[in-house]
Design a protein around this nucleic acid. Structure first.
Lengths: 349, 349
DNA sequence: GGCAAAATTGTAAACGCTTACAATCGCTCG
DNA sequence: CGAGCGATTGTAAGCGTTTACAATTTTGCC
C-alpha cells in the first residue's frame, strides 16, 4: 500500500485514471465531480494512503491544515484546559494546532497582531482565548482572511463562546453581600503583562454592579491587580493587607488567585472565613479540597465548543450566517471560605 | 516599506541586484556567498520586510519553520509548564510550535508515531515530553530525519534533559523510611491511557531500591496506578483504602496525585500526617500551602533547556557530536505531611 | 436525431522557495 | 600573459498543490 516515497496527487491521478485536477476537486468535495469520479478517487487515495501535502496546498493557495490557538499564557489552569480540549477537536478534524502563548507580554502580543498576513500564511484559522483586543485589532483580524473564533470575548464579529462573566462575578459578589459583608476587595486579573483581559474586565463590572445594587461603590484601593496565577494572588493579597488592611470579604477573579490569597492569609496568621470571606470563579479541582466557595464554569466545554465552531466555519466558508455568541452556564458553589459576617469579626473602621 | 502584497525572494533579488539563488543562500547563511552580497541581501530584505514563505520553503525541501511538542497530555501541571517554557524558546528562535497532545490515549499515540513521514513534512523537529517509547519507535524517530530532543527520557539517541527520577523517588521514599515507616504504598503515574510514562517507571525503580536498601520489598497491592492528575490520585487513593486499607506512608508519583490522595483521605475522615505520611514530587505551587512534603524539580528549566538544545541542533545539523543527557537538580523539601511513625499510629497487622 | 446548455474533465500556469549544474569572475603561477 | 583553479553567482528545473480556462462529455428538449 504505502510506498517508501509519499504518494502524491499525481499518483492518485494515475491510479484512478483521472486528471490531477479532478482528483484535487474530488478530494476537497468541490462541486462538479461525478459520483463515479468521486469513488474512483477515494479508492485510489485509500489504496495509496495518500495524504495531501499541506505545504504544497498552502503554497498554491489552499488550506494550511493548521489552526493557531492564541492564549495569554499556557500555564494557567483555565488555559491549559481550554487548549487541550480545543486541540483534541482540531486533531480530530485533521488540523494541526499551533500554540501561540502571549506569555503575558505586551510586546509578544503586538508582534503577533502586527503581522496577521504572516500568520495567515501559516494557519487557516485562529482560536482566541480571552484576549482583549482593541477595535483596530478586531478589524484587522476580521479582515485578515483568517477564520476566527474565540472563548471569553464579546462584541466580536466572529463566533464566541464563554460564560456570562459579568453575571458570574455579580453572583459571587452578591453572595458575599448577602452574607452581610460590605467592605469588599477584588483581586482582579484584568491586567496581565501590559494587556488587559476581557473576562476580568467583565467580572469587575459584575462586581461593581452587585455593589451598586447595595448602594455601595467600589473603592480603588480595594481592587488590586493579581495577574492570573497563584503567585499573583499571593502577592496581591500581601500587598492589600499591607497597604489597606484586611477587607471583610474578597472576590478573586479566578480560583488560582483565591488560592494565592489564602496562602498570603495563612502567612499572616489569618484565615478564611474566620478573618475574611473569600470567593473565586472556576471551580478548579483543588477548590473543593480547600473548601473554596466559587462560581463553577465548564472550561473544557468552552474550548471544545469554540473549536468546533471554528472547524465548521472552515469546512463551509460560504454561508455567511452571522457570528454566534454562546453562553455556558455557571453555578455558585458555596463552600467553607465564605460565611455570614459576625458582629465579632475583626474589621477596621 | 511593507507593501500590501507580501515580499517574495524575487523582490529581494531584484532590489539587491542579485539572483534569487544567491539571495536564498545568503539568507540561509550558506557558504560561498561574498561579504558584499550578504550585506546587499540583508539590506534589501530588511527594507522589504521580507519573511520567507515557510510553505514554499518546505515544499522545496527546506525547513518548515515549526517544531512539534509531543506530550502525554497538556493539562497536567508539569506539561503545561514545560510546554510554555519550550514554546517561548521556539518562538524566540523563529519557530512555530505545534502542540500534539497524546491525550493519554494509546490510539492517538500510535497514530502519531505510525506516520512520522507525515510529521516530518510539517515540522523540522520534535520535542518529546515524558513519552515512553519502545525500541522500534525510538529507531523510527531517530531515522525519520526529524531533529529530536526530549524531556524526561533516557537511553535515547538524542539530547535529553530531565531529573534523576530514580534518585528523586529514592530520596522521597528514603525520607519516609527514615521516619520509621515501612508499610509504604505508591500512587504511580506510570500508566496513562494505555501507554507508559518513562519518568514514572524510573520513579518506581527508585522506590523499590529504597525499599530493598531497608530489606523491604514492594508488594503489588501497594502500587496503584493513578494516572497523573488530581482526580487520578483521588480515585487511586480511594481504591487503595478500600481494597487494602491504609498504609503507613504514601509516595505519590507527583504532587497532583498527592493532592488527590489528600482529598481522598479527607473524604474518609483521615488526614496526613496523622493517619498516613504523604510525599510527592514536583513542588507544585500549591504544595507549600498544603504543607505537602515533596521533592522539588525545576520544570520550566527542563522545557526551556531541551528546547534550546533542539534549536541548536536545528541551526547546525552538521556536527554530529553525540547526544547529551542532562540532569537537573532536585531537592527534598520536608513539610507537614510526613512525620515520624509513632507507636500510637493506627496500622493494621 | 441534433443542438444548445449544463455538467464534467483536462491543460497548464502559477505559488515561492531550494538546489543541481552551468557560467562567470578574480587570482595565482609557470 | 594565459591557463587553471577556486570562489562566487546565475539558470532553470523541480517540489505538490490549486485554479482559470479550455476541452469534452452528458443531458434535456424539440
Amino acid at each position: 500500500m504505502v510506498s517508501a516515497q509519499r504518494a502524491t496527487i499525481q499518483d492518485v491521478a494515475v491510479l484512478s485514471g483521472l486528471s490531477i485536477c479532478t482528483v484535487s476537486r474530488a478530494l476537497r468535495n468541490l462541486p462538479n465531480v461525478s459520483e463515479k469520479a468521486h469513488r474512483k478517487v477515494a479508492e485510489a487515495a485509500g489504496k495509496l494512503g495518500y495524504k495531501p501535502s499541506s505545504a504544497a496546498s498552502r503554497l498554491a493557495g489552499g488550506s494550511t491544515g493548521s489552526i493557531a490557538i492564541i492564549a495569554p499564557t499556557a500555564t494557567a489552569w483555565f488555559f491549559a484546559q481550554a487548549v487541550e480540549s480545543a486541540e483534541e477537536v482540531f486533531a480530530d478534524g485533521g488540523h494541526d494546532t499551533v500554540l501561540v502563548s502571549l506569555r503575558n507580554n505586551a510586546d509578544v502580543r503586538s508582534r503577533v497582531f502586527a503581522d496577521l498576513a504572516a500568520l495567515r500564511q501559516r494557519v487557516d484559522g485562529v482560536l482566541l482565548l480571552n484576549v482583549d483586543l482593541d477595535a483596530d485589532e478586531i478589524d484587522a483580524l476580521a479582515g485578515s482572511g483568517l477564520a476566527v473564533a474565540s472563548v471569553g470575548m464579546s462584541a466580536v464579529p466572529w463566533d464566541n463562546v464563554g460564560i456570562d462573566d459579568e453575571h458570574a462575578a455579580w453572583a459571587a459578589t452578591s453572595h458575599l453581600l448577602e452574607l452581610g459583608h460590605w467592605d469588599l476587595a477584588v483581586l482582579s486579573g484584568r491586567e496581565l503583562g501590559g494587556h488587559s483581559v476581557r473576562t476580568s474586565n467583565n467580572r469587575l463590572d459584575g462586581f461593581s454592579r452587585a455593589l451598586s445594587e447595595h448602594d455601595l461603590t467600589v473603592h480603588p484601593d480595594l481592587v488590586v491587580n493579581a495577574g492570573s496565577s497563584i503567585e499573583g494572588g499571593r502577592s496581591a493579597m500581601t500587598e492589600l493587607i499591607a497597604h489597606r488592611g484586611l477587607p471583610s470579604a474578597l472576590f478573586a477573579d479566578c480560583d488560582e488567585i483565591a488560592f494565592g490569597a489564602l496562602m498570603a492569609l495563612r502567612e499572616h496568621g489569618l484565615g478564611a472565613p474566620r478573618d475574611v470571606s473569600v470567593i473565586g470563579i472556576d471551580d478548579h479541582p483543588m477548590s473543593w479540597f480547600l473548601g473554596l466557595s466559587t462560581v463553577a464554569q465548564p472550561v473544557a466545554d468552552q474550548g471544545a465548543f469554540a473549536a468546533n465552531l471554528l472547524c465548521e466555519r472552515l469546512q463551509n466558508p460560504e454561508p455567511d450566517h452571522p457570528p454566534t455568541n454562546h453562553f455556558l452556564d455557571t453555578k455558585l458553589i458555596e463552600r467553607k471560605t465564605t460565611r455570614r459576617k459576625r458582629r465579632t469579626d475583626k474589621n477596621h473602621d
